[in-house]
Nucleic acid binder design. Structure first.
Lengths: 191, 191
DNA sequence: TCGTTTGCCTAGGGTCATTAGGCATCGGTA
DNA sequence: TACCGATGCCTAATGACCCTAGGCAAACGA
């Protein structure tokens, strides 16, 4: 009998692809095993179990995600950086809904921190440097940005926008609004 | 043997409470049955199955939610209305994370529309009337609002905000920012 | 060639979703 | 009160999935 040649990484990658196809909830040990033409039990030598598999998907996704976001903002600042970052963010979520969903899971910081899965957030902090904010304004602005981007993408993925109006146009509008806000953060919120 | 006296409504309510306690994913036909001291199969006379149960939770939640939001904005406008709406929104999501999660599920419009589960969105439209926007600005503004509120609440629920800075303060800041934005929507985004 | 590692398998136990069909209980009726 | 139909809850059974324990053989280094 020929062996399938599995590794934790191969399994994780297949699981991530499966997640993008059928949703994170559809990622099952059995389904991944089937994909490799292997019995369920065989995966347990490579992966601790289902929850471990999901964490691995999340870490994989976080790395991929940051690797796309970093070059998008590199060399840009202000509105340019914001738009590039946001578009990359949204494109990734739409192309990889399962991976994106996996990233939203709460993950043990002892695992996620060393894996650098907060790199994406650091990129936002860096991006905001171009808007000249200080603490604690920066933290608040980062939270606003994360909230809006995540919220929009999440609602869009779930088909939450029913209105006929073009989602694309709304997205551009939202980004413009965020840019205005960040540009005038001080004056606007000094009250 | 005494009967348990179940109804679809009782089952749904119990399931919703369970969802808030252990998460939507923890809502299982078996668990709800156990709660009533009844066999799993017995629930199928009241509810079509697990997915039906989840839809019912969502519809229940949408009604409760709108019933809280409506009085919060009644008689207020502008920033007052925005803050009241947003605070009510966030409080509900934090008090009822399972119900809130259920509402995010994609639901067949043929079911959700008659049940009035879009009442919440209509409330946002109504609220924005106080800011004097026209279409399509209103739609874009509604989407921005929904995105930011949902995104913030979702990230907060999942423990996505790690920084030491007070989440409460950030929330107030975010609301202030949204108010400024809505107030100056026209001028700010005319470019 | 010969271990030794280790990848994949079989066997088996547990939870859960769901269906089919039976019996008893409850509410109304004679 | 005695009966009767509806229906609420049960037992039985199937199938998917998660996971553990223990075995055999393929792959690899010496």
């Amino acid at each position: 009998m020929r062996r399938a040649g599995l590794t934790a990484d191969l399994v994780t990658r297949a699981a991530a692809d499966l997640a993008d196809e059928v949703g994170l909830a559809g990622v099952t040990v059995s389904a991944v095993a089937r994909h490799f033409g292997v019995k369920d039990a065989s995966l347990y030598s490579h992966v601790r179990g289902l929850s471990d598999l999901r964490v691995r998907i999340a870490l994989l996704a976080a790395t991929e995600f940051a690797d796309l976001l970093a070059p998008a903002v590199a060399g840009r600042s202000g509105r340019d950086a914001l738009v590039a970052f946001a578009d990359t963010y949204r494109d990734y979520a739409r192309a990889h809904p399962g991976r994106y969903a996996a990233m939203q899971q709460p993950i043990d910081p002892a695992v996620s921190a060393p894996a650098g899965s907060l790199r994406g957030i650091e990129l936002i902090y860096g991006m905001l440097r171009g808007y000249g904010l200080d603490e604690p304004d920066t933290t608040d602005a980062v939270r606003l940005l994360r909230s809006t981007l995540h919220g929009f993408v999440d609602l869009e993925c779930r088909g939450g926008f029913n209105d006929p109006r073009d989602t694309e146009a709304s997205w551009r509008r939202v980004l413009a609004a965020l840019d205005v806000l960040l540009t005038h953060w001080r004056e606007a919120l000094s009250a």
